[in-house]
Amino acid sequence: MNPGVESAEPGGQSGAASGIEPVVRASGVRMSYGDVQVLNGVDFAVAPGEVSCLIGPSGSGKSTFLRCMNGLEPVLGGSLRVLGEEVGHTLRDGRYRPWTPKEFAAFRRNIGMVFQRFNLFAHHSALENVACGPVHVLGAPADRARSLAMEHLERVGLAAHAHKRPHQLSGGQQQRVAIARALAMNPELMLFDEPTSALDPELVDEVLEVMKGLAAEGMTMVVVTHEIAFAREVGDWLTFFADGVVVERGRPRELLANPAHERTRAFLSSVRNQKERQEP
């Protein structure tokens, strides 16, 4: 065990001390698809402004955990508090009452999500994709939404492509539009599920650059990724996931240099080998 890692808790021991509630606080989160147990008691926390990266083997439940955070999958055990609310339930008269679809929708407005496969609205141009949330969810006036959407596209370097449909854009451009779409809602938390895994290697950096910019501005982010270099450089914390539990977590540099667990070591060396095979 690395004492340095254990003493400085991700999610801000300091935050708890100064009375700031963490943005995400998971304790013993469990989730299953039918009989298949996917999350077996996940403990996890993110303090405001932190970038927390999640790594782990395929099928270990990283996506599922991320999707639990904005209520796309139901939490079936333990407690998951995000932005001050128990996801999916409100405490009233000594009981937790399940949310209505409307309450889920209202909760998700404050959380941006970026998917591995972009999931842009195919019938909308890049600009319309970005304006869609403000117009249809927040009820913003169309011209105001339009100019704001344009600003967000400029920020991800795509102002010149505003009128193109998703199928006319490269993967990297689509993913940047997807990030702009999420940012247009002014989220307090951004969730990224392997945002660069579906991209050709030469398009990965343009997306990572946008994410680095976001991190530098102090956005609270949870990033599932296989980009070890990104996790080391940008992440405040690194969490290693396997078989539906957190195996270990710590400062990225320390965890990558000195993994405490054999599983982490094996995973890291397999990821590095893959990288070397791709880029000899």
């Binding site: 679809p101 929708a105 909760f107 972009f118 999931n119 869609c132 969810v137 997807a178 999420a182 809602m185």
Partner: peptide, 17 residues
């Protein structure tokens, strides 16, 4: 594509919207 449904929910749309 179901991914667009998920993206719509993630943006904060209700099922009807």
């Amino acid at each position: 594509d179901h991914g667009q449904t998920e993206a719509a929910y993630a943006l904060g749309m209700t099922p009807a919207k």
